[in-house]
Amino acid sequence: MNVRVHVTPKKGILDPQGATVERALPNLGFEGVSEVRIGKFIEFRLDPQGKTAEQAKAEVDEMCRKLLANPIIEDFTFAIDEG
C-alpha cells in the first residue's frame, strides 16, 4: 500500500511560516493569496501483512497520532491506496 500523509498546523493555531509567506507573495506581485498554511507531506509504503483496509487505516491513524504529527499543535489527513 502507498500511504500519503499531510500534516498541517491545527486550525486556529498560529502558523508563523504561513503568515510570513502570505506577506511575501504580494511583494512578488501575486495578489489574492490568503490563509497560507505550511505543513509537511510524508509518504511511505506499508506492507499490508494480511491486514484489512480498516486495520491499515487504524494503524496509520495511530502512527500519525504517535509520531508523524504532534496532535497538540498539528492536524493530519492521510490517504492509502493499493499499489
Binding site: 508563523p16 511560516q17 510570513t20 509567506v21 511575501a24 511583494n27 512578488l28 505550511i38
Partner: peptide, 14 residues
Amino acid sequence: SYGDYLRCGAIARF
C-alpha cells in the same frame, strides 16, 4: 532573515 521560514534565505533573495 524572514524567520528562516519556508527555506533559509528563500524570501530574502527577493
